[in-house]
Amino acid sequence: MSWNAKYAVGILLTFILLAAVMLYVFPVIYFITGVKAFTPANFSYTRIALWTVLGLIFFYNIFIEKNPFLIWKEKKYTTLFYIQAVIALYLTCSFGGAFLNLIIQLLTHEGMSSKLVQISSVFRNNYLLIIFTCLTAGAVEELLMRGYIQPRIEKIYNSPYAAIVGSAALFGILHSTYGTIGQVLVPFFIGIVFAFFYKKYSNIKILIICHFMYDFVSMMVMNFMDIKHLSAF
């Protein structure tokens, strides 16, 4: 099997496994635990499932691809650069995402994601779960979507732009389970920003930190807001 074929299978496997977790993990957890409710414990199991996907892709990489998981060698930067990069990425994603959400609201008048409302209730004052969830999103999603998928798409198509758009599109599609247009387009926008950064600076750690920070701030805001005000947020 050629390298491109191995990379293509790896990308497809990653997407299928992540999609399966997003779509079917709750019914499976309900069946195993016997607790058919959206509880903190059940939600934490879904995050463990995401770590399991990352582990499976690591195994695929080790035994099938037999190449470094991160094809692009990590570049080292100063502490000041880390701080500046995280702040710049966070502000870009926050203000850009807010503006995009505003446009979507004006054009579609779509309501609040019912899944997001459920999540907000589960996380209420559960700070350990918030941290675990944000850490999972930051590490698993960045290692898979940017660290693993993006460079391999570029290798297959010999195009950095195909890799940037392709990885961002997959990132957006995987968020479609939230059930709103905004929950697809905003992650797609963030995916574009992160993919451009990764292509230019080749440092996944900065993206993991920024992703964690973005989700953590968002969830803390949700934690201290009433459910009825979440749609405005």
Rank of each mutant, 00 (worst) to 15 (best):
K66N: 13
K200C: 06
M220I: 15
L13W: 01
S113Q: 08
A19T: 08
I153C: 05
L54K: 05
Q150K: 10
L70W: 14
I11Q: 04
W72H: 08
K228P: 02
A37E: 01
N101C: 10
I57S: 07
V221F: 06
Y198T: 07
I71S: 03
V193C: 09
F171H: 01
F123A: 13
K36Q: 11
N125Q: 14
F171S: 00
N126V: 06
G10P: 00
R47H: 12
Q105V: 11
T52R: 04
L89N: 09
T133Q: 02
P160G: 03
D226K: 14
A20H: 13
P151W: 14
A163I: 04
N42V: 06
L50Q: 15
C93K: 03
E65Q: 11
P187S: 12
L129S: 11
L70N: 10
V117H: 07
A88H: 04
V193S: 09
Y161L: 15
I104L: 09
V53R: 05
T177P: 07
G10W: 01
I16E: 03
Y90T: 07
Y127E: 12
A162V: 09
A163Y: 01
V217I: 15
R124C: 06
G97A: 13
Y90K: 10
T133P: 00
S120Q: 15
K6V: 01
I119T: 11
I227Y: 10
S159G: 09
G147E: 06
L100C: 03
T92G: 12
S218D: 11
T39I: 12
G147A: 14
L80P: 09
T180M: 03
E154V: 12
M220L: 15
A168E: 01
S167R: 01
G147K: 08
I11D: 00
Y148A: 04
E141H: 06
V193N: 11
L144G: 10
Q84V: 12
L50Y: 13
A5S: 12
C93R: 00
N61Y: 02
L100I: 05
G34F: 01
G172V: 00
H175A: 08
T39W: 00
I209Y: 04
N67M: 14
E154G: 06
